[in-house]
Amino acid sequence: MVPAADNQTRSENETKWQLGMLLSRPFFSIGRAVIRWINILGAATVFLFLALVKVFRSKQLSKIVQQLYYIGARSTTIIMLVSVFTGMVLGLQSYHALVKFGAQGAVGTLVALSLIRELGPVLTAIMITARAGSAITAEIGIQRISEQIDALHTMRIDPLRHIISPRVTAAIISFPILTTVFDLIGMIGGYISGVMLLGLNSGVYFHSIQANVEMKDISDGLIKAIVFAVIVATVCCYQGYFAHMRRDSHGAQAVGLATTSAVVISCVLILVSDYVVTSLLI
């Protein structure tokens, strides 16, 4: 026979233990998620490093040029379209804000600096993620689930060199160029709304840009573009390359979810890294 007092103590201990488990459960989940994210971050860093190292192997140039056309040249139209309207709306908004202080002469400066420092790199990166990044993830994901990447392994062709490296390199080259295109076309957009539609003086518009935009503004914008390029290319390639290892889905569904994840994660990381880089550069 077990004494009643012992039973009561045991029952109290069990209740305490269960309560402790209940309270610690969120910490377990957070801990597991943190460890998983650190693992992914580590793996993605190694993935990027290997891809960059393999750029310097033979027979890479033609593949890089092909990807430059795909990621860079074919994104030009959409970048120009977005940038012209971004510039126009910037010109419009800044004119109506500045005219209250009689400072409408600074419209050019405001449009140019907003574009060069911030909107150019960020919007370009987001637009390329939507257009080329998603396609990269889907393409690599399909290659993975249809065993094309395994086939490369069996042919002794390094998939990182053959598939990933040219895409990462092409992104690092195209992002700054497309950002520059975005900035220039955006300033033309600002000119259309500020000068052609609202009657600002053309000379004042261009003079304010020339006088107030410094080389550092341009270089900071391009540094951001390169950072975004590395982030977008790594995230999109990584998601596609490891689409078969997703726990939440398999096959075509895994490719679909990998594509969605690639776009969402890229966009969030673009904005987070934008703040970090800006604070470091400013």
Binding site: E139, E147, D150, M155
Partner: peptide, 22 residues
């Protein structure tokens, strides 16, 4: 491979030539 694992963005010629090219 059982599912052939041919590269769908390459032609038959390019698929066969790939191991030699690379």
């Amino acid at each position: 491979f059982q599912g052939n694992a041919l590269f769908d963005s390459l032609t038959v010629y390019e698929n066969i030539a790939l191991p030699l090219l690379e």
